[in-house]
Every structure is written in structure tokens, then in C-alpha cells.
């Protein structure tokens, strides 16, 4: 079985959401672009190595949220390009809403007057 670190579940959910949102923003992209974009947006706070990113992509593909096809990059390298599926868009919407709800709750909790 996978050697699951305690925080993996939270991280995994977060990671999936990050990837889905990035693909929505960028359109069809390969893994390197996705990792670079997440790194850039997070100002370098989130650095995804391959061992984290690609299993996540595969998981999302297995669940039918994204779909990968081989293509060619602008500098002529073969790579797999991932794009959101309809199910992926629904999932992104649902997860975004859930995340915002959770964040609002946490915010209220953390800033409550007492």
C-alpha cells in the first residue's frame, strides 16, 4: 500500500483542486506547464516534483475529471497534454464551493471575538 503521510489526504484534495483550476485557466497543458504555473501563482511556495504531480494527474484521469493525449510542444517535444472534461468542470465547481465554504468557516473560527 502507499506509504501515506498523515497530511496526504488534505494535501491530495488541495492538489487535485489546484490542478483542476490550473487546467481550467490554462486550457490543455502538459504536466510541466501545470507545475510551473502552480509554482508561479504560489510565488514558489508550492513546488511540485514529478512524484507528486504525475500520480495526481493519473488519479484525476482515472476518475474521469481530466483527459490526457499525446501532443507536441512549441519546441517540438512529445508530451501529454491534459484538458478538463465535463465531469472535471463539475467537480471543480463543487470542490471550489466546498473549499470556500470551509475557508469561510475556518476564517470565522479563527477570528472569532472572545
Amino acid at each position: 500500500m502507499a506509504n501515506a503521510a498523515p497530511k496526504t489526504d488534505v494535501l491530495q484534495g488541495t492538489l487535485d483542486l489546484m490542478v483542476l483550476r490550473t487546467l481550467e485557466a490554462l486550457g490543455p497543458s502538459h504536466g510541466y506547464t501545470v507545475a510551473g504555473r502552480i509554482e508561479q501563482i504560489s510565488s514558489g511556495a508550492v513546488q511540485l516534483n514529478m512524484g507528486t504531480l504525475y500520480p495526481a494527474l493519473m488519479r484525476l484521469e482515472q476518475r474521469g475529471f481530466i483527459r490526457g493525449d499525446w501532443g507536441v510542444t512549441e519546441n517540438n517535444r512529445r508530451a501529454r497534454f491534459y484538458r478538463l472534461t465535463a465531469a472535471g468542470r463539475r467537480q471543480l465547481a463543487a470542490e471550489t464551493a466546498e473549499w470556500e465554504r470551509m475557508a469561510a468557516i475556518m476564517h470565522s473560527l479563527l477570528h472569532q471575538q472572545g
Binding site: R59, R78, A79
Partner: peptide, 30 residues
């Protein structure tokens, strides 16, 4: 769906993982 996909790949032991390596090598190359 994920379970089926994984089960399918499990029961096809002849299946090679060359495509996975290609993808990772592409990432490194990029």
C-alpha cells in the same frame, strides 16, 4: 471508475509502463 481502471491495469500484467516513463522524461527535458 478509478477502481475499474486500476483493476483493469492490474489484470493486464503484460502491460508495459513505457508511456509513463516517456511522460516523465518529457517533463525533465522540458
Amino acid at each position: 471508475r478509478e477502481w475499474f481502471s486500476r483493476l483493469w491495469h492490474t489484470l493486464r500484467p503484460s502491460h508495459r509502463d513505457a508511456d509513463l516513463e516517456d511522460e516523465l522524461r518529457a517533463h525533465l527535458a522540458l
